[in-house]
């Protein structure tokens, strides 16, 4: 179980203070699958980074199983079982696929690595020795990134837009794998940041994050009708003129 308690995040920039997250409180229960969705720039990745310890909240707390982990480092959180697959995974010069996945979980064997590669849609014979650098495509990098989280013993697995950049042919397979892995793992909390219909349908709960706030929560039936209308009109940051037009269109 991981909770955010009144979490705010702001950055000080030249032009002044930018508020990224505003007073977010939410609990993610063990064994449940959550999908965070919402418009670009709404704050979804920031929520993930605050949980992983990549950003420190300017106020509020992060609680993992009744323990305050707000001041824990990224590595400490990883040890406690929080894992995060980046939206934009970095590339590594000279580190091959095998080494990379071993770093993600020291305990895994070569057979485990081959198996996860197959599941993720990458042929082990072809990929084991490839370096995780510019030689891999964006979609291949995404698959590796997801594999690195799925093969860990994550208590809390956060996947940031796992489907982005993945080809149409591998799409279904990858989404199924992520959903199945969630159900197989015991009491894992899975949090997927996504816009995919399939994930939205599979979720126990959907959370819409926009303008640095949780706008609405609920299941697919409750949320789906709101999303289209909401993202287009209410939740997207728009300049004033556009806002007026939108108000007319939406009849607000």
């Amino acid at each position: 179980m991981i909770s955010l308690e009144n979490v705010s995040l702001k950055f000080e920039e030249e032009k002044g203070i930018v508020h990224i997250l505003n007073d977010i409180s939410i609990t993610f229960e063990p064994g449940k699958l959550y999908v965070i969705t919402g418009p670009n720039g709404g704050g979804k990745t920031s929520v993930a980074k605050v949980m992983m310890g990549i950003h420190n909240p300017s106020s509020g707390k992060i609680i993992l199983d009744d323990q305050d982990i707000t001041s824990c480092s990224i590595s400490e959180r990883a040890f406690k079982g929080v894992r995060y697959a980046f939206q934009n995974p970095p590339r590594f010069k000279g580190i091959d696929v095998k080494w990379f996945l071993k770093l993600a979980n020291e305990a895994i064997t070569e057979a485990d690595i081959s198996l996860i590669l197959k599941k993720i849609g990458l042929c082990p014979e072809e990929y084991l020795e490839r370096t995780v650098d510019a030689g891999l495509s964006g979609g291949e990098m995404k698959r590796m990134e997801i594999a690195s989280v799925l093969l860990s013993k994550a208590k809390v697995a956060i996947l940031d837009e796992p489907e982005a950049g993945v080809d149409l042919w591998g799409f279904e397979q990858l989404l199924n794998l992520i959903i199945q892995s969630h159900h197989k793992a015991i009491k894992r909390t899975t949090i997927i940041i996504s816009h995919s219909e399939k994930f939205l349908k599979a979720a126990d709960e959907i959370i819409v994050v926009a303008n640095g706030k949780i706008q609405v929560r609920g299941n697919y039936a409750e949320i789906h009708p709101l999303i289209q209308e909401g993202i287009n009109c209410r939740w997207r940051k728009v300049c004033l003129e556009e806002e007026k037009e939108d108000e007319i269109k939406c009849g607000r």
Binding site: I74, S75, A78, R83, I95, L103
Partner: peptide
Amino acid sequence: DQIIKLMTFGLSEEEAIRVLLDGYLK
């Protein structure tokens, strides 16, 4: 972001830097 990525695997910052340099110079 490379250092941070390796820290999300549980490596300390120093360990992450060592791995990155080892790979880079391999």
